[in-house]
């Protein structure tokens, strides 16, 4: 099983990530087990997927925003947000919108080009699970959460900006 960080712990990953086939062909979805399907698959077959044995999550590519699944959130135990490259920051907005605007409380998982130095901001935007890219040291990456403990902004993990926390304190 691949290693995953979830809620700041290294855990085994039981989810199978399905990709689109060549030319965007929809992949077959196994009848059992937990799977994360591409958005296109979800949109095309969500009613069929809802009755399969095993859980079904969806993954959003960098250009697929939170609004694409906003109506389905209660049926989705997991939404993965793909970072095509760590420099592509769209996923941060996607995660934040899922949490703050649409009130999503299931797992949001970062997939793709996910490395240690990006975990902190991802977490602040509401991502709580991280499928690290190849070659990353998952145990070592946990230290990243200890960096920069103080912050100015409101975020998913700290809903009040510092200036309101100061007044309250």
């Amino acid at each position: 099983m691949a290693k995953l960080i979830r809620n700041r712990r290294v855990v085994a990953d039981n989810w199978l990530l399905l990709e689109l086939g060549a030319g965007g062909a929809l992949p077959p979805v196994p009848a059992e087990g937990d799977v994360i399907v591409p958005l296109t698959v979800w949109l095309a077959r969500r009613d069929a997927l809802a009755v399969r044995l095993g859980q079904t999550g969806v993954w959003l590519d960098s250009n697929e925003g939170a609004e694409t699944v906003a109506a389905d959130l209660r049926r989705l135990p997991l939404i993965a947000v793909r970072f095509a490259a760590f420099t592509d920051g769209r996923g941060y907005s996607t995660a934040r919108l899922l949490r703050e605007r649409y009130g999503y409380s299931g797992e949001i998982r970062a997939i793709g080009d996910v490395g240690r130095d990006h975990l902190l901001n991802m977490q602040r935007c509401g991502i709580d699970a991280f499928a690290l890219r190849e070659g990353e040291d998952a145990e070592g990456a946990l230290q990243a959460f200890e960096e920069l403990p103080a912050s100015y902004q409101a975020s998913v993990v700290e809903p009040q900006p510092l200036f309101r926390r100061r007044v309250a304190g």
Partner: peptide, 14 residues
């Protein structure tokens, strides 16, 4: 400055 320093969402803009 304070708002923009390590803003979690806008750290990897285009």
């Amino acid at each position: 400055r304070q708002w923009s320093t390590f803003h979690p969402e806008f750290n990897w803009l285009p």
